[in-house]
């Protein structure tokens, strides 16, 4: 019991320090997950088995994973700048927190000296055995004494879901064309009926940023992804095309005559 406490306590505090002082946000998330798992072990060691499992499943498993997902969206490489924007802010913060910590620890220490705090805990064997187990005991309170708060918590969850949708779900202004519509559009024009050219069809490249060539040797602009064209990061193949064309004409005089006429 004591060994469990010390191991988990040291690891949790290490996780806490790691979280606060990591440069990269993803590392912070992982340190926090370490802390949470250690806390779960501490819960189980304190006769809160249900809570320990829920901590792993809900907190570490759902909440921390959500953090990691959002970090992936925002940018895995995001790291804080270390430049202080308000001078002395860092020092003042650390001083304030140390003061708070000293205060709380003193109070806890004082409390253990006085008779008001049970140094020997009552323990939960009685409470757990009362209803036939930890889960049953919590169930009795959840659906008995605290049933109103339990029902109102649903309002919280609805708000969260609604809010996430409102802020993050992009509504479409125009209707999405259906498959039949898209098919008809494609077949109506002989240029697209056989399907659009895939990018990079030129014999020397198969990259997405290299345009395809049409049968007459010209470059097919619509074979490139729109985003790359907008950014201007596509591969410019005109020079290559010109060189190869010139070589072709040089090696085949009949074609060159056609070209000239």
């Amino acid at each position: 019991m004591i060994a469990v406490f010390w191991v988990c306590a040291v690891l949790s505090v290490a996780g806490g320090f790691g979280m606060v002082f990591s440069r990269k946000a993803v590392h912070s998330a992982l340190w926090l997950a370490l802390t949470m798992i250690n806390l779960a072990v501490l819960y189980v060691s304190q006769q809160a088995e249900f809570l320990g499992i829920v901590q792993v499943v809900v907190y570490t498993g759902a909440v921390m994973m959500l953090f990691l997902f959002v970090l992936m969206i925002v940018g895995v490489d995001s790291s804080d700048s270390l430049v202080e924007t308000i001078r002395g802010h860092r020092l003042a913060s650390v001083a304030a927190v140390l003061a708070l910590l000293v205060l709380v620890l003193t109070m806890i220490n004082q409390a253990t000296q006085s008779l008001a705090l049970n140094i020997v805990p009552t323990g939960l064997e009685g409470a757990n055995a009362d209803e036939g187990g930890n889960v049953q005991g919590i169930a009795k309170l959840l659906f008995g004494r605290y049933v109103f708060a339990f029902e109102v918590t649903s309002a919280l969850l609805i708000t969260a879901a609604l809010g996430a949708m409102v802020l993050a779900h992009r509504d479409r202004l125009t209707r999405v064309p259906g498959q039949e519509e898209l098919s008809r559009e494609r077949l109506a024009d002989p240029a697209t009926a056989a399907g659009l050219p895939a990018p990079g069809v030129y014999a020397r490249h198969n990259a997405v940023d290299t345009p395809a060539l049409l049968p007459d040797g010209s470059i097919a602009e619509n074979s490139l992804p729109g985003a790359l064209v907008l950014r201007g990061t596509t591969h410019d193949v005109r020079e290559e095309v010109a060189v190869t064309r010139a070589a072709e004409l040089a090696s085949d005089p009949k074609q060159a005559q056609e070209e000239q006429s």
Partner: peptide
């Protein structure tokens, strides 16, 4: 005198 824990 429930003390400092309560005060905190």
């Amino acid at each position: 005198t429930s003390g400092l824990l309560l005060s905190a």
